[in-house]
Write a protein that binds this DNA or RNA. Structure first.
Lengths: 200, 200
DNA sequence: TGGCGGCGTTAACAAAAGATAATTTAGCAG
DNA sequence: CTGCTAAATTATCTTTTGTTAACGCCGCCA
């Protein structure tokens, strides 16, 4: 059973040829964190520049709309990073809330500390680039789905690509992430059952 | 009148304290490129890892859907970078077409060449991070607008924030970027004229 | 300058989504 | 096992969007 550190060390080796033995300075500054179901990792208006690798569990990033409704921006799960992009990229208080949907295990580091480490250990730099690019690619892919597909098509694709995730997460959050209401998602599912079971 | 090089040198100085005099190795590898209206910069299935800073003009990134319709993913204009994210991030043939909507002036570099330069000149690294983060923040903001706002609200916001851009670009591309049809955008505009001229 | 073609608008109808509320289902605590 | 609560479904009605087609406007080019 691999730990976060194992995973990240492997990644660092693959990306930059950094041997696990040479990653001590990086991992010395990380802290393990546990969240219980429904616990907030980052709250609205918070300014902390924490960055975490998810070892286990699912975290939901959402915002509260003017009318009081929640809107889920994205879900992150094991093997991904989670951080307040408002705070890290724009140095603004987080407009989003990051909350565990399940018990979560994190490996955490402060972004400013990470930056210091990167100054003295530029060999870790590929790790940052890798995750930035990965997140950018993911965001663009989601964006693409909004301009090319209908809500039903987006849902079908999500089912096809992340069936496990859809089953771990309440439908209402999935709906919100697809840009529709839970009622609408329910109707889509009904349509899918009756009519075309075939697809994508 | 500032050139691309001036702008980028300024950015490099602000971000990393690199003096303009020390940026020669970087700019030695760049090429100016001119595109005329409607000329494609990157075509579908293309594998080139070109990266360009837009000095003047607007470029549209779009894909052709299964039904033959076009879907505009994003628009980029002067001061921004343009590149095939499929090709640079995932080393896949571009699924998008990048085409000039106006006469365009670019400052181009090959990404692989840039990577080589970054190995010997890590002091330029902040530039890459800056643009990656900037693009990520932009993508997430657009994504946010899809989960929190209606098409009409997205249009109003686009008008409020990028009025100049909306006026430079044909409505049908704006509509597609908002995830709706040109017919629908036309109705939204009609609604806005008659009813609420106020607000966000 | 006359015609052609693309773009935006409008119209008419079908399909889908939003809002609200009632009802059923399901997960969890005691 | 029972009961409570939240989530999901269903129903009804309204609003918005999609689809297709017609029409007018304008720019461009022969």
């Amino acid at each position: 059973m691999g730990t976060s550190i194992d995973t990240l060390q492997e990644l660092l080796f693959d990306l930059a040829g950094v041997l696990p033995a040479d990653t001590a300075p990086l991992f010395a500054m990380t802290t393990p964190v546990l969240l219980e179901t429904n616990e907030a990792y980052i709250r609205e208006e918070e300014n902390s520049r924490r960055l975490a690798f998810i070892e286990q569990g699912v975290i939901r990033a959402y915002t509260i709309k003017e009318n009081g409704d929640e809107a889920t921006l994205l879900l992150r799960w094991e093997g991904q990073f989670i951080a307040s992009h408002d705070t890290i990229i724009n140095r603004q208080p987080s407009r989003f809330i990051y909350r565990a949907l399940e018990p979560v295990k994190l490996l955490q580091i402060d972004y400013d500390v990470l930056e210091e480490i990167l100054k003295t250990h530029p060999e870790y730099e590929p790790l940052r680039n890798f995750f930035l690019m990965k997140m950018l690619a993911e965001s663009l892919k989601m964006l693409e789905s909004f301009v090319t597909q209908s809500p039903e098509e987006r849902y079908r694709e999500l089912l096809a690509e992340r069936f496990d995730l859809v089953n771990r997460v309440p439908d209402k959050y999935i709906a919100s992430m697809l840009g529709i209401t839970p009622v609408s998602l329910s109707r889509i599912r009904k349509r899918m059952h009756t009519k075309g079971k075939t697809s994508t």
